[in-house]
Design a protein around this nucleic acid. Structure first.
Ligand SMILES: [Mn+2]
Ligand SMILES: [Mn+2]
Ligand SMILES: [Mn+2]
Ligand SMILES: [Mn+2]
Lengths: 149, 149
DNA sequence: CTCGGAATGTAGCCTAGGCTACATTCTGTC
DNA sequence: GACAGAATGTAGCCTAGGCTACATTCCGAG
């Protein structure tokens, strides 16, 4: 190749700061993902069974109970949950509020995937990861699409 | 509440093994995300400029150069890239092949987001995280939707 | 040809999030 | 009421992926 760059599309690569900011946002979103899944799950367990025990949380998530307990400790440090030894886990106001938002977003993401033709199990499975990367802007667009469909 | 559970929807919670498997898939997908972004970016840099230097990679990703170099080491260990000291980074067959798949998927995800009404910058930004959680099944559904639209 | 600045590489530190192994506490059954 | 088994908690290990600080190498201007 000599001095072409003629018929190749110009904007193949985004500019550096733009791209760096996109990657940075993805990293930030990912760092909150685990806490989001925990509060959503704890809220579900509290609603459906009245209690959220570390063992149940661990089994639902598919991790060792020690892993769950350690993460519950982080939920407490971040003010999302409270738990006294051997007494189960409960959510703070902040935790409940986060859980509500996370649950609503999860449902919208699944519904959108179904609406564009994704099979049910793939929709539920992929949504578990996708949901954490859906911004408010995108969520609003999804809701609008579902409403106007 | 006494012994109701009457007018509440039955299938609010998925069964344990099902849910655990969904969370597990999300964890697995996440663990490959960084490598995917690296090979896609390296491929872009090689195509557009002929070389992929650690400094450029780091600047594009918004991380310190030492972080990029460490991850490049992991790419080498996993057989996705080759690099001799001070000589830039290149992709193996496996790396190129992964990059091609990742780039194609990235584009489909962005196109689908745009198609359902997500604004451009949100689409590009969210896609950077979402793409890593889109299974082959879901990707196929996206492509079909875009084709039939 | 030299030498200074940029790029590259190395070392070491930190946190998150997995795990196993072991210690402790609780609780339902007899 | 004792006690075995389940649940809970603790300790310690590992890897990934960030970072800063410092050491080394390269290369282009003069
Ligand atoms: Mn999730
Ligand atoms: Mn979810
Ligand atoms: Mn990405
Ligand atoms: Mn991408």
């Amino acid at each position: 190749m000599s001095d072409l760059t003629a018929e190749t599309p110009i904007h193949l690569l985004p500019e550096e700061p733009t791209q760096a900011s996109r990657f940075g946002k993805a990293r930030t979103a990912q760092s909150g993902a685990l806490l989001e899944d925990y509060v959503e799950l704890i809220s579900d367990l509290l609603t459906s069974g009245g209690e959220a025990r570390p063992t149940d949380i661990a089994r639902r998530l598919g991790v060792a109970h020690a892993t769950a307990i350690k993460t519950i400790g982080r939920l407490k440090r971040e003010g999302l949950a409270v738990a006294k030894p051997y007494r189960g886990v409960f959510l703070t106001e902040a935790g409940e509020s986060l859980a509500a938002r996370v649950r609503a977003r999860h449902r919208v993401v699944v519904d959108l995937l179904l609406a564009v033709g994704v099979p049910f199990e793939a929709a539920e499975s992929d949504a578990e990861g996708i949901e954490h990367h859906v911004s408010d802007t995108t969520l609003a667009a999804f809701a609008r699409y579902l409403a106007e469909r």
